[in-house]
Design a protein around this nucleic acid. Structure first.
Lengths: 203, 203
DNA sequence: GTCTATAATTAGATAGAC
DNA sequence: GTCTATCTAATTATAGAC
């Protein structure tokens, strides 16, 4: 493997990453149907043909974008949860919730994608649930059950209440700004929301 | 005004209503961009030309669909809130929250529309906030402040936490079914969620 | 690898028959 | 009022130049 091919591979990977990040933003903002591959290419500073070359189809680009979002969630949570092994169970759960709120604030695309794809039982929804959502649901539901002693029949309610309470304000940040005057993207607002939701779920 | 014209006007109104209900469902399900006027017409059992005749443009049809959703919210809430004037402040607030949860369960389109339109600061978002959201935010935030003694600076957080916690599970009902096995559309699940969220916000 | 050109569909809006 | 036909523009996927 020569230095030339290595450089070319780096360029290839950089282009792929730019397209992927543009896809995450555009799919989350406009939905799968509303997002066009031309706009994604334009946002990535390239052209539509390259999307086909790197990802074959709009559908596969969407899956790669979803993978990218959940990879980010995992890495941010893993770092943080390792740092809070001290403390009693309830405070650990609170801090885990705060960490999740901070992530969803930095990546409102996660929630936007979930709402966009959760509405209709199609292939994309099935894939999203089976590949990404189910293992995370098991973990979160287990943590909530241990920390709050909640009836297991209520775990789906707690899971969706938590996800909605944590994420909505960041997913519709432009609306929140106009409606309330509060910019939820500021550090202070993120911390306030993180603590509010953590104490809501684990009083 | 003859009987003939009256009958014609009834037919006109019935057609308009069918288009409107199809528009509510389709816009909520696919987003403004993803919904096509042809599909809305097809779901309403008519053709694309009639949409132009009754609503002039896709944009105006969307506004009429939003009006229709919020009209439903108002009428269901007015009926119910009148019936619960007894009880202390906190239990009244809880029952108001339960009523809101029951509505959002019956009309998940409200939340889907809010998420779809809250992401980008465009004309539709501005209109939605100024015409429909702001007056309701004032009412809900005031009620929450009175019942919970919450710091006014935290009211936006409480408002969006409530809206998200109450609605998400119904907005992504197909996903919830596949992920958890629970069908949130059953009467039992709706009541469980209503009580769960009410006690979450007003312990 | 990257980009341009194009084919086949589909979109919203419009015109006009009935 | 209702419906069909059509215009212009945008869509995804593909072919091929460099």
């Amino acid at each position: 493997m020569t230095a030339t091919t290595t450089k070319r591979q780096q360029q290839r990977e950089a282009t792929r990453e730019r397209i992927l990040e543009a896809a995450v933003e555009t799919f989350a903002e406009k939905g799968f149907l509303g997002a066009s591959t031309r706009e994604i290419a334009r946002r990535a500073g390239t052209n539509q043909g390259l999307i086909t070359y790197h990802f074959r189809s709009k559908e596969e680009l969407w899956r790669a974008a979803a993978d990218s979002i959940f990879d980010g969630l995992d890495s941010q949570l893993a770092d943080r949860l390792q740092a809070i092994e001290h403390g009693d169970g309830r405070e650990r759960t609170r801090e885990a919730i705060r960490t999740y709120v901070r992530f969803t604030a930095s990546r409102p695309e996660l929630f936007r994608l979930m709402v966009d794809e959760g509405k209709v039982a199609d292939d994309r929804m099935n894939w999203l649930v089976d590949v990404h959502l189910r293992p995370r649901f098991e973990t979160v539901a287990g943590g909530l059950a241990d920390a709050t002693g909640l009836d297991r029949a209520l775990l789906p309610h707690a899971f969706y209440a938590l996800a909605g309470a944590a994420s909505l304000i960041f997913a519709v940040a432009p609306e929140c700004r106009r409606l309330t005057g509060l910019d939820p993207a500021t550090d202070q607002a993120i911390e306030n929301h993180a603590d509010f939701v953590a104490r809501l779920l684990v009083p």
